[in-house]
Design a protein around this nucleic acid. Sequence first.
RNA 1: CGGGGCGUAGCUCAGUCUGGUUAGAGUACUUGGUUUGGGACCAAGGGGCCGGAGGUUCGAGUCCUCUCGCCCCGACCA
Length: 567
Amino acid sequence: MRFTKAYIPTTKEAPKDAQLPSHIYLSRAGFVTQVAAGLYNFLPMGKRVLRKIENIINEEMAACDAQEVDLSFVTPAELWEESGRIEKFGKELLRFRDRKENLFVLGPTHEEMMVNIVRNRVTSYKQLPINLYQIKTKFRDEARPRFGLMRGREFVMKDGYSFHATTEDLDREFDAMEAAYKRILERLGLEFRVVEADSGAIGGTGSKELMVLAGSGEDTLAVCDTCEYGANVEAARRAPRSAIPEAPSADFARFKTPNVKSIEDLSNFFHVDPYYTLKAVVQRAVYTEGSELVCFFLRGCDELQEVKARNSVSAIDLVDATEAELIEIGLVPGFIGPLDQEKIRIVMDNDTKGATAMFCGANEADYHFVGVDLSVMNEAHFADLASVQEGDGCPHCNGKILHTKGIEVGHIFKLGTVYSAPLKAEFLDENGRSQPFIMGTYGMGVSRLVAAVIEQHHDEKGCIWTHATAPYLVNVMVSNIKEESHMAYAEELYGSLQARGIETMLDDRKERFGFKMSDAELIGFPFTIIIGKELDNGLVQIMVRATCEMITVNAADVLSKIEELSR
RNA sequence: CGGGGCGUAGCUCAGUCUGGUUAGAGUACUUGGUUUGGGACCAAGGGGCCGGAGGUUCGAGUCCUCUCGCCCCGACCA
């Protein structure tokens, strides 16, 4: 492509709304423009990057015998009523009526539609497994779109769905998809981590997220410093504590503790490690119908992990209980304990099971129990409630857990029969019995990946595309186009590079050196070949964008040098 | 959905508090000239429903009311 024919509107200044590097540089370098909240246009450079990512996905999917389809973006609302998700998705689902007053939605994901196209057509176990996917625009009317392409309302997603006769076969496919997704991210040149994820209310036996590591990521990950283990903090586990503080010696007693309300107060008052205190967190659990107060107990040194807590009571939502609500049911804020009270539903953290020498509230103002043996609570509801913290032990090895930030670019999920059962998508098994399909779902945020590449690869000058994602691998920049011999050499080089299948931009604009260099850096071509004064001595320079290093080479060797560098 | 901020040239912004020439700057764009290895300089130009509607006033970018849009924090997010 010749720059003089290209549409690449670069700007010196960032749009005032842009905050993240990916948003700033993708806008400044002319890859995307914003249309409205969460809506973006892809300009030629942006579209090329999208296409590159799509091509890699297509190649890896083909290698797994997954087949590409293209489902209607506008879907009848009936399908969503059938699956029950029209309620669950709520306002995120953009609904509208056609001229005949029929209700439709813009597809935010396509489980329903995909099930619909196989049901009654795939009817025998002999036709399974099948893996179908598409790369398509999705629309979710997010309450608060933000961060440029990272959380748009309209976005491009690869969504795949597999159908199986047995859970064993689903497990095999799930592993194959995980491997394919890893290969895709490796080929894109991204540093990432596959982490265990929260399965949420849908349940299922497996849910993994593919996280591109970047400080601006919205998700917090707990990763092991030694082994492969990683998990979203919402789902992270940890090894049993190894260094347990020395237990305080205290016989069971009710003790006056005036105004001692917080874990810190309690710990100081008795000079006891918070490990031996019991923290009470009261939340209002909201269900599809109604709500109730629930008290979660965990060791004073731990923090409640909200998603875990929500899952433990199968609630849709948890909201902080007010002091008034506690008092109303007879609890005393600051002195809540699990013993001898039936005023509130309780859930105990696993790590408190059988705990001894504990200090906890006595459910009476200004009193705590000391030396409590919690094995009396062994019949209570126990669950994993604690948030995994940095320094905790890895559940798989002797390593330590660290926290890091990630951008969720992929999510793979064993769905089982969650959709096939309500939608009555069934096949006949070997025994002639009707069974719902066992399904897996595999999503990858394609437009989000464009942003993720830049979040992970940029500097103060602009974008740094990886070789596989660059809109053009090489930029041939002519310092002064009026020098006919320079221009002639550039044209020849441009032709040779293209003949070798190397995607090349020829910057033939009548602009000054500095102007063109700044654009090259902002746009982020991996290599810029600079043709200028030195050509008269038979030399050109290659600017390597990742390092901004300038390599001087013989004009005759530039092709082989580019091939060497891009390997 | 709660809280906060902002809408003026393609872009980034001044001007609004305290109403009063023909609404400004930088940048980008057009033309001519001089430049040519790090976003050049000189000169001349084109470009505005001051987000929209209503109101107050002799007079509104500026004051009042309503409305729409965008951004940030939070809630929310298969």
